[in-house]
Nucleic acid binder design. Structure first.
Length: 321
DNA sequence: AAGACGAAAGTGGTTGA
DNA sequence: TCAACAACTTTCGTCTT
């Protein structure tokens, strides 16, 4: 976070895993903060400030519903990691020609091990699916770290990718496009949506391809992908604009009333979020220009303007001009 | 000079016959 | 499959601060 831009510096994590109440809001001092695990964020319940974001998911990777299940699912060894192509489970034959006790192997045994090693190498990485996965997961790695996407979402994307691969969806598209589409889907599922534009920019593919691939993805795998609402974008945009929690809180209220008034249907959620932030910025005396807001929301000024006009008109918000 | 505004024409996706 | 359609974009001239 760059302080020269007036962006508020985030407090170092004061988050305690077992009780969110240890954390408090740096904006209003309230200890009434909620931990939104789906978003990977800690948010002040009072003013809406995002205190902590990109949180890691520290919980077990399985849910357990009964005591018995819990017992069964207690961890042994490292967790299964879906972002490694073989889920981190395979055993390698060691590279040295020594046995369990560290003794040198007899020449005949050595030749045998050499052959085994060769075959292991071939079967592990040389089936086309595995090769595909290796490439895809390294691309996913690069993309998520470039975009600052939390690990839990990366894992989600990896799972989706595996499913898509199983259904032979990779035909006709490149690995890059597929990875981008699964990541976009994972962000949507976890309620921290990124725009198609953002994902496309960071993976050097065009938006059209990405959109097409994403739609195909939705059709082929049966995962419910929620519709992204404008509210999902608010905290991220206001962070990027260096706006206080007050502004984002107010923007969320505006969007809620707008939804009740029924004027949000069919409109681009990012445009709506942008307009709501523009209005609440003015109301809370933290004005940003339409251009600035349009840039972070990746829409045009015209769209911000149109949405803002609609909101003001329909909700009878008095905006000092 | 920067920001806001609005008109007009163009674009890509959705919908319904 | 295709045309109609709504939403959004691009561009540009004008007005306001």
């Amino acid at each position: 976070m760059d302080e020269t831009l007036g962006i508020k510096k985030k407090r170092p994590s004061n988050y305690d895993k077992d009780s969110c109440t240890r954390a408090y809001c740096i904006e209003c001092g309230s200890t009434d903060v909620i931990c939104d695990e789906a978003r990977g964020e800690i948010i002040c319940n009072k003013c809406g400030l995002v205190i902590e974001e990109h949180m890691m998911d520290l919980g077990p990777e399985w849910r357990s519903y009964t005591a018995e299940e819990r017992k069964k699912r207690s961890r042994v060894g490292s967790p299964v990691n879906y972002s490694i192509h073989d889920k981190g489970l395979s055993t390698m034959i060691g590279p040295e020609d020594k046995d369990f006790y560290g003794k040198k192997l007899a020449p005949s045994r050595r030749a045998e091990i050499y052959r085994l090693r060769k075959w292991q190498r071939r079967t592990r990485t040389h089936s086309s699916r595995e090769r595909n996965l290796i490439q895809a997961l390294s691309e996913l790695d690069r993309l998520t770290s470039q975009m600052g996407i939390p690990r839990s979402i990366k894992e989600e994307a990896a799972i989706i990718y595996r499913k898509a691969l199983e259904k032979r969806m990779s035909r006709g598209t490149t690995i890059e496009v597929m990875v981008a589409a699964t990541l976009y889907a994972a962000c949507r599922i976890r309620k921290i949506p990124r725009t198609l534009d953002e994902v496309a920019e960071n993976s050097r593919i065009n938006k059209k391809q990405l959109g097409q691939c994403f739609r195909q993805l939705v059709r082929t795998i049966d995962v419910a992908i929620p519709i992204s609402t404008p509210i999902d974008f608010i905290s991220r945009f206001s962070n990027e604009l260096g706006l206080s929690g007050k502004v984002s809180g107010r923007a969320i209220k505006i969007l809620e009333t707008a939804k009740k008034a029924g004027i949000t249907a069919g409109k681009d959620p990012t445009g709506l979020a942008a307009a709501a932030l523009y209005i609440s910025g003015i109301l809370e005396d933290e004005r940003r220009t339409q251009r600035e807001i349009a840039r972070v929301a990746r829409v045009t000024e015209v769209t911000v303007r149109n949405r803002y006009k609609e909101l003001v008109k329909n909700l009878q918000i008095a905006v000092a001009v």
